[in-house]
Design a binder for these strands. Structure first.
Lengths: 125, 125
DNA sequence: TTTCTTGCAAAATGTTTGCATTGGA
DNA sequence: TCCAATGCAAACATTTTGCAAGAAA
């Protein structure tokens, strides 16, 4: 546990919402002006691998398109990043949601994050 | 409607799952070897703007981190791309889901895609 | 010493832009 | 003719990598 790692961790955890790597870097730089962006990235990946934080978007890095028109839910494998469409849990779902006034909701989808069968088998090896 | 656009559209719609721009390009190139990647991107953006397809991930392009440990749902504005955490719709949600055998589900979150109040106000202008 | 981490710079990836050219309405 | 769309190449943004130097065990 280096001082850099410590500060990156504390800074990250103090940030509300869903910060980007660049945002963490900027914030850390205030305390540690000599920090490098590569170090921030390396540590963020460590934190993700260790499970103390997660990635909000499983597909940053590439544009992924959704061509299916009907509402449906998603199964996302956190290992291989593949996505499967599953039948929508249903319209009653929407009633349960705590959507605040002012937000114009248009689509709902449940994201189920986990590990697919293939990746589970590989993990065992 | 150019031949390129037509073929990009047809190819895209024939692709199962959640294709990337690169995948669409590769597929289109089989029919239209002279197609350029830029043309594919430009057309995909047109399709997205017109509403006939959607982006699966609102945050490709940047790593976004999730530091909150408790399960919660997300409000995502398709205009400004901001994300708000809302209280989780609840554990009963999980029972309703059509998760197939073999997939090891770990986390569930409802993504509510729409337009936030601020962006709605700007749209009106 | 040995190992792990840092910081820099270069490379890699994915996407966008500018612009000259082209092909239809 | 005219305008929008194409294809190329360069620019851009984000992330990753290789590596030499430094710090900790």
């Amino acid at each position: 546990m280096t001082p850099q790692r410590q500060i990156i961790y504390e800074t990250l955890m103090s940030m509300p919402g869903h910060p980007s790597a660049e945002a963490v870097y900027a914030q850390v730089k205030e305390q540690l002006p000599s920090i490098s962006l590569a170090t921030v990235y390396k540590n963020l990946h460590l934190f993700i691998e260790s499970g103390i934080i997660r990635e909000m978007s499983q597909h940053h890095g590439t544009l992924r398109l959704e061509t299916k028109a009907e509402p449906h839910d998603h199964l996302v494998c956190r290992t291989c990043r593949k996505v499967w469409d599953i039948e929508h849990a249903g319209a009653k779902l929407e009633e349960r949601l705590n959507v605040p006034d002012g937000f114009k909701a248009e689509r709902y989808a449940v994201e189920v994050l986990g590990v697919c069968q293939t990746c589970q088998e590989h993990e065992r090896l």
